[in-house]
Every structure is written in structure tokens, then in C-alpha cells.
Amino acid sequence: MLDDFTTRALLAGIGLAVATGPLGSFVVWRRMAYFGDATAHAAILGVALALAFQLPLALGVLGVALAMALTVSTLAAKGWAMDTTLGVLAHSALAFGLVAISFVPGVRTDLSAYLFGDILVVSRGDLALIWGGAALVLALLVWRWQALLTATLSEELAHAAGLNPNRERLVLTVALALVVAVALKVVGALLIAAMLIIPAAAARALARTPEAMAALATGIGGLAAFLGLRLSLWQDTDAGPSIVASAAVIFALAAVAGQLRRG
């Protein structure tokens, strides 16, 4: 069954959705959209470093994404003007990554694979990596779920209940870096943040509890992967952008449905 590349692609997309559903919900609740961008864009620099030093790709991406995510969350905790700082970091991470990658011979040609993903050539090994990473992220979030929700709602309430909001923030930071490493192959660096935000935002319109929103976001992410792959095979469009476009259409429908239901 795994011999079929479309099956592997679909499984990769669903694996990603398992992680991006709940994590994306936190990104939406905490208004971390730009944070996701900065971390995801740093992935390109990770690719360049991994290629230059002949390290496993996922390792380079994970390392650089983690460094970027930690930098950003440290700056945020110190009260930097986040909007501007994140904008600077997100775009310069991408620019430096693209500059660095042009020094690596022979990569320029498949640069678009790193920018927009290459889900149709996912190997069994990639699939194991994606599902392993996604399972790790999910386990991390489930383990800290109550504390994460409380800290997201109010750091004060969390602190008064004996929790440490900084530790919960670190959990999310690590999870984000993991998701970036996992998602690079599926949707590419430019669209990782989209996969975090759009399904969660679509789920928001329909959900009444945080758990329902996270679960719905996963379902919507999986559906978007399915529809996007269909579109890609049928019209020969790029798979990554097709998946994100499908998610965006679902978002529009969910927003309308949410409005109607609320009357």
C-alpha cells in the first residue's frame, strides 16, 4: 500500500495535520502567527547548513528552527516590540537562508522543493520521520494540555495555581520547531505557518471548547491535504500550495457556517 506515492503523500499530509491541528490552535490563541513565520523561514537556513556540513536535513532544520524559536520567545519574554522584531527576524531568516543556500553547489535547481514542499516524492523514511515527529508533538501537547491552556488563558492564573508559564511557553517553542522540521517536506518553509493557522482558524468558527477546536483543526488539516493532493494530481498543480489553498477554501466555508449558526 505504501508503494503508491499518492498514498504516501496523503499519509504525510495527515501526519502533519495531527501535529498542526493542536499546535496551530495554540498559535491562534496566543497570537503567535508571526512567530510561526519566523521559525519556519529559519528552516531554509537550516537546509543550507545541513547541506554544507553534510548533516541529515531534518537535523539541520530542527537545530536552526529551535534556535530561532528560542530567540524569539526570549525576546518576547523580555518585552520587545514583537510585531516589528518578528517581522525583522522572519524576513531576514528567509533572506539569509536563501543567500546561504546559493553557496551550496547544485541546490539552486530544487530550491522550490524547500520553499513549497515536495510531498509527492515522500519516501518511507520521510514518512517515518513525519509521523514520528508529529506523534512527539502530539504527546508533548497532550501531556502539558491543562497547564498549557491555563497559561495561555492567563499567565497570572497559571502562576497562582503553581504552574510555571515560562516552562509552558518552552514546550510550545520546542513543539513549533519540531513541526517545522516535519512540515518542510510536506508544504515547504513558506507555507508551514499557513498550515498552522488556517485549519485552526477554520475550526474556531465551529468549536465550543479548546479540545473541539484542536480536534477539528486536525480534521480540517487532513481534509485539506486530501483535497489539495487531488487537485494537484488532477491539474498538475504544486501540491504544497494546493493543500494550503484547499485549507483556505474550507476556512471560508467554515466562517460562513459559523456566522449562519450564530444567526
Binding site: 491562534v28 490563541w29 491543562q146 491555563t150 488563558l153 492564573l157 497562582a160 471548547t209 473541539a212
Partner: peptide, 26 residues
């Protein structure tokens, strides 16, 4: 200790029923 802060803004981006809120964090 039980704490009631002066301000608590529940962001609309998080769907949260009263019942669910009471179960946070325990």
C-alpha cells in the same frame, strides 16, 4: 490559594465554555 485577578481578558480566539474554564488547571 484561590485567586481572582482584577482583569482577565478571555481572547475570543479561544472557544471556552464556563464549564471548561472551571476545570482549568485542575
Amino acid at each position: 490559594l484561590g485567586y481572582v485577578p482584577q482583569k482577565l481578558a478571555v481572547d475570543r480566539s479561544m472557544p471556552l465554555t464556563v464549564r471548561r474554564f472551571l476545570s482549568l488547571p485542575t
